[in-house]
Write a protein that binds this DNA or RNA. Structure first.
Length: 585
RNA sequence: GGGCCUGUAGCCUAGACUGGAUAGGGCGACAGCCUCCUAAGCUGUAGAUCGCGGGUUCGAAUCCCGCCAGGUCCGCCA
């Protein structure tokens, strides 16, 4: 797919190559500040070899740039060559491109490459909580962006069915009598964070996890029994693995439901036990044992991580226990080798607490000559104003409760504004769209590596740079279009001269560039900025350019086309964030 | 003790990888805009020693060094 701005860019690059043939340089274009042009080429790096000032270079070069159907003007300013696109040509080709491609507008050329994107991978011992809510949202957005960027994408949830966390749950479910005796010790009256009254299995069963986790710390007998479950599952005992499966399955169903509610489905759930059952983890162990960095200590095997730049109190990466069983990270290596067989690109979304483990896995994969090393997006935790969340301690806000609160709050807003005009059913529909969108947007608009302190007022803020602003722009566009009589799309780019029209259409033309940048740089949050900017420009157009009341027929039709094109772009970009675009709100 | 990440107006945030044109936005505050396509909107004002101190450079929020603060990790846990 070739987009108008690609053609403009290519023409600039060709021109610059001709003009600057004397110099050795890579031509990288920037987008200048508004009104300074559409693309800019900085001349600073050429100054040393040219022995001229950047100002002189840019002036000489700008004079030599030839005008063409794309290039309207090249201007030297402050050491930059600023290129101005031919507005008429850009407008007509952009609108044509949007109408032709419609829901596919923005998507990049198919790449014939498979990407496996692993995200969420939460322990199936309780409901998803807000502390880790960034994971599915970042993950699913990356999935959508990579699909748009032309990859063949599969999303995976690595299901931890062997570890201590899930063993604690299993013990609790099989010792219900002991749990019910202890439950009141666990939940003291008036405890602040015990909130969820939901009937879903994940909310019901997490109590077993919490109480038995507590018991385990006080009672060695319980601890031993749990340890036994872990050990037998790690040895690959089918009976125990089945018992575990029975315990967590309903919890996993609850997690899936929560994900579905925020428009997330995962293609494949991959149980960790697969790699024990199929013995692939054993071949990982055999290979690592042969490494020159491997040593043995009291029967356990470890890799020395120090030569690879790992520092700290302990630089040993143990991959086999003294009892011969493997560890989480060992199995993770087997999982990654398996993934690498089925993909050209691997992406993982992980909490920052996994940085060391991930590095160890990466080093081991390199030692084993793995073809693909995963690209990892780490995110910082969402914490509460008075500290971090913990499922074990029951000090959490569950994702489901946050979703409900967002939707409820959105309903109040709709009712306040449209209560007299709309049916309850319609308002509930809008509230669901706005509430879920607000949640996803608020999380995705911040860079993954920034810490977030969860505050209800901020999570539920519906003004300014928040999703209702964008959805409202889309609804406005739909409102105008629903009132048009002539449904045929016609436009004449000669009539679209108003500054607000030109700026808006230029913004629409940039959409594919943002998909390119978001995917190649693994930066989902820039799609959120793009949407905000687009909606904002549409609102300015709405203020300056009356559509339906415009007397000049051709101009009116052209403006309707601009509105329709904006509608398509907003919808497509919202879709990339997993947010629905309401036609009315 | 050490590693990694973060620190931009009262609050939240973009820009940092790839140094460059007056550091963009939003919330909140203040002042305006509905006889006209949904005011969940638009316009304007005030508000920033870019954590602190050095260095490299013609030029540093951006690169390097040191320090301070917060997060996170340094289990034969996951």
């Amino acid at each position: 797919m070739k987009y108008p701005l690609d053609e403009f860019k290519n023409e600039i690059i060709l021109n610059l190559k001709k003009t600057l043939f004397k110099y050795k340089c890579e031509i990288r274009l920037e987008i200048p500040a508004e009104n300074m042009g559409d693309f800019a080429f900085p001349c600073f790096s050429l100054a040393p070899q040219a022995k001229k000032s950047p100002n002189e270079i840019s002036k000489d070069a700008a004079d030599k740039i030839e005008k063409s159907k794309w290039i309207a003007k090249a201007e030297a300013k402050g050491g930059y060559i600023n290129f101005f696109v031919d507005d008429k040509h850009l407008i007509s080709s952009t609108l044509t491109s949007i109408f032709k491609l419609n829901e596919k507008y923005g998507q990049l050329q198919k790449k014939d490459k498979k990407a496996i994107i692993e995200h969420t991978s939460a322990n199936p011992n309780g409901p998803l909580h807000v502390g880790r809510a960034r994971n599915p949202i970042i993950g699913d957005t990356i999935v959508r962006i990579f699909k748009a960027a032309g990859y063949n994408v599969e999303s995976q949830f690595y299901l931890d069915d062997m570890g201590k966390q899930v063993a604690i749950l299993v013990w609790g479910i099989n010792n219900e009598d002991k749990i019910s005796k202890d439950i009141n010790n666990y939940y003291p009256p008036g405890s602040a964070y015990v909130s969820s009254k939901k009937n879903n299995a994940d909310h019901q069963r997490v109590v077993f996890y919490q109480v038995s986790s507590n018991l385990m710390q006080r009672d060695d007998k319980v601890a031993n029994e749990i340890g036994e479950i872990v050990k037998r599952s790690e040895c690959g005992e089918h009976e125990v693995i089945n018992l575990i499966h029975k315990a967590y399955s309903p919890v996993l169903e609850g997690i899936k439901e929560s994900l579905n509610r925020i428009n997330i489905t995962v293609d494949k759930y991959v149980p960790e036990s697969n790699f024990v059952k199929d013995k692939s983890v054993n071949s990982v162990v055999e290979k690592l044992k042969k490494s020159k960095y491997c040593s043995k200590e009291e029967g356990a095997f470890y890799l020395d991580m120090e030569p690879f730049g790992i520092q700290g109190r302990n630089t040993k990466f143990v991959f086999v226990r003294k009892d011969g069983t493997t560890l989480y990270a060992t199995r993770d290596i087997a999982y990654h080798l398996w993934k690498a067989k089925h993909a050209d690109l691997l992406v993982n979304i992980l909490g920052e607490d996994h940085k060391l483990e991930s590095k160890q896995v990466e080093i081991a994969l390199n030692l084993m000559g793995a073809k693909i090393i995963p690209k990892v997006i780490f995110y910082s935790f969402v914490s509460l104003p008075d500290g971090k969340m913990s499922t074990r301690r029951g000090r959490v806000i569950y994702l489901d409760d946050l979703i409900d609160e967002c939707v409820k709050r959105a309903y109040d807003e709709v009712e306040k504004r449209r209560g007299k005009e709309l049916s309850k059913k319609k308002m509930r529909e809008i509230a669901e769209t706005v509430g879920i969108g607000a949640l996803r947007y608020n999380i995705i608009k911040v860079q993954p590596e920034k810490d977030i302190v969860f505050k209800w007022e901020e999570a539920l803020n519906f003004e300014g740079n928040a999703v209702p602003f964008i959805q409202y722009a889309h609804a406005r566009a739909c409102g105008i279009l629903s009132k048009t009589i002539n449904k045929k799309r016609e436009f004449d780019s000669n009539t679209l001269k108003h500054d607000s029209e030109v700026k808006l259409v230029k913004q629409l033309a940039k959409f594919p560039l943002f998909i390119e940048e978001a995917s190649s740089g693994y930066k989902p949050h820039i799609i959120a900025s793009y949407l905000y900017e687009t909606a904002s420009k549409f609102n300015q157009f709405y203020r300056d350019c009356p559509v339906l009341s415009e007397k000049n027929t051709m101009l009116r039709r052209s403006r309707i086309a601009v509105v329709d094109a904006t509608r398509i772009v907003l919808k497509n970009a919202l879709q990339l964030l997993g947010i629905s675009a309401p036609e009315e709100m």
